[in-house]
């Protein structure tokens, strides 16, 4: 325990911990909607679109967070209005976004002197080189996105579960959907620079699935999902530091362990019932 505390007294590890927790809390919370609405590929596609925005920022020497957010918002609007097309299936629309964005990021960075390193940075992130400013930006994002989702908790759940009935009661599902995708897009474009595509996507998917297997009450699904992320991140960072292994895959491996435990628990519960 003393060793654990010692490690997190090192400044860059402190920064990594704060960043990991902020990204983890937001991704694991919004991930519940992403998994339950069956739009997991939205997370993957937006993450990839965001990375293309970063690549554009690097090449044109702009602020990459701004270019990533701008391109992600374009992706958000495109998805919000095209996912229910009668001609193109939803998963094909998402795959289209993913493929085009991935290829674009590689092409854009291919002629850049540090292209390979930049691409690896986008994929795995660099949680150990976070600055204080980046942490404050993530904290502000947590406050804004968290407030939106706590205030409109019932609205987001209602339009996700039954858009037709919500429309009959005067809610505007299309508007709520756009707001939902905007919050997801904002989160991904902010989180990806520090945590990388792999960890962000992992946090959006693995804790919510594990939580759904643990509990059968919607409010507890959110709580368990966040808890799994919050436990896995410091443990993963500690293991990564002490064993000298990459942090993002280590955190994902620990969350997968949680998934295994949840799966076993769910099987046992149904066997007993």
């Amino acid at each position: 325990m003393a060793e654990l505390i010692d490690i997190f007294e090192i400044e860059f590890m402190q920064h990594a911990l704060y960043t990991g927790l902020l990204v983890g809390i937001m991704c694991s919370f919004l991930g519940v909607y992403i998994v339950l609405r069956r739009i997991v590929f939205v997370g993957a596609s937006l993450a990839q679109i965001s990375s293309t925005g970063f690549a554009i920022g690097i090449i044109f020497e702009m602020n990459p967070v701004v270019s990533a957010m701008a391109l992600t918002m374009i992706g958000v609007v495109w998805f919000a209005f095209n996912l229910n097309s009668k001609k193109i299936p939803q998963d094909s629309t998402l795959a289209l976004g993913y493929i085009i964005a991935s290829a674009s990021a590689i092409l854009i960075l291919s002629k850049h002197p540090k292209g390979d390193a930049d691409l690896l940075g986008l994929l795995f992130g660099n949680i150990l080189t976070i600055t204080s400013d980046q942490i404050y930006i993530l904290l502000a994002a947590l406050i804004i996105l968290g407030s939106i989702h706590l205030i409109f908790y019932k609205e987001f759940l209602f339009v996700s579960f039954d858009p037709e009935m919500s429309e009959t009661l005067g809610f505007r599902p299309q508007i709520w959907n756009v707001l939902f995708y905007v919050t997801v897009g904002m989160l991904i474009s902010l989180a990806i620079k520090s945590a990388g595509i792999l960890l962000v996507f992992g946090l959006l998917v693995i804790p919510p699935i594990a939580a759904i297997l643990i509990t059968e009450k919607i409010s507890r699904v959110f709580a368990w999902s966040v808890l799994i992320a919050v436990i896995s991140i410091p443990s993963g960072l500690y293991l990564s530091f002490t064993q000298d292994i990459p942090s993002a895959p280590t955190i994902i491996a620990l969350m997968t362990l949680w998934l295994g435990i949840s799966f076993t628990f769910n099987k046992l519960r149904h066997a007993v019932a």
């Binding site: 339950l36 609405r37 069956r38 019932k154 609205e155 759940l157 209602f158 996700s160 579960f161 039954d162 037709e164 009935m165 919500s166 009959t168 009661l169 005067g170 809610f171 759904i212 509990t215 059968e216 009450k217 919607i218 699904v221």
Partner: peptide, 26 residues
Amino acid sequence: YVPQREHLENIFPFTAFEVVLMGTYN
């Protein structure tokens, strides 16, 4: 309004009570 049951996202873990409560949201 009572929609077709197939149109609902049945994977959401709502209890019957929570589903009925949605009717009061307006």
